[in-house]
């Protein structure tokens, strides 16, 4: 079993976020009626297994003035995708950078990188920088802007004991 019922209780308690108090784990431990050491050991184990990726802040790009975003997509030489994907993913304005399978003939692109900027012009400038970075490994590219959010829901754990 990957997560047991205790892990699940901890995940549920932390889904809304970590308390912003000097001793956040002590507060959560009390809420869950378990010792702080045991709670922290559980969290450490979930981090080690990759269930918790990190404990961190999610910034709101819109509030930071980054109101334009484009999903840039690239057809990159498979032999160089790991090396170049890491370089694209490290760019400060890129979030959500993934290698995904192509769906030929409709979709020749294997690298997806979300680019944020304060205008479409800025997004296009950043896109030109990525194009230059990919150089001779690049065979084609496109950009898709979102025109409407059709649905957005967060991670919801179903109750299963």
């Amino acid at each position: 079993m990957i997560i047991d019922s205790t892990d699940r209780q901890i995940i549920e308690a932390l889904q809304g976020g970590l308390p912003l108090v000097p001793e956040p784990y002590a507060q959560v431990a009390e809420q869950l009626d378990m010792p702080q050491d045991a709670l922290m050991a559980r969290i450490a184990a979930m981090k080690a297994r990759g269930v918790i990726r990190r404990i961190a802040a999610a910034p709101n790009h819109y509030k930071l003035g980054m109101t334009a975003n484009g999903m840039t997509v690239w057809d990159v030489d498979d032999d160089r995708i790991t090396e170049l994907g890491a370089q694209v993913g490290a760019l400060p304005y890129v979030t959500h950078c993934y290698e995904r399978p192509r769906a030929l003939p409709d979709w020749p692109y294997n690298l997806f990188a979300m680019v944020h900027g304060d205008s479409r012009e800025e997004v296009e400038e950043k896109r030109a920088e990525i194009r230059a970075l990919l150089g001779t490994a690049l065979r084609g590219c496109d950009i898709l802007y979102s025109t409407r959010i059709l649905k957005k829901t967060g991670l919801r754990l179903r109750q299963k004991g």
């Binding site: 995940i11 932390l14 889904q15 809304g16 976020g17 970590l18 912003l20 969290i43 990759g50 269930v51 918790i52 990726r53 990190r54 404990i55 961190a56 802040a57 999610a58 910034p59 709101n60 509030k63 930071l64 991670l155």
Partner: peptide, 11 residues
């Protein structure tokens, strides 16, 4: 709302 959420990121 500059920070949407602070806490664990689950996979």
């Amino acid at each position: 709302r500059v920070i949407t959420r602070f806490g664990p990121f689950f996979d």
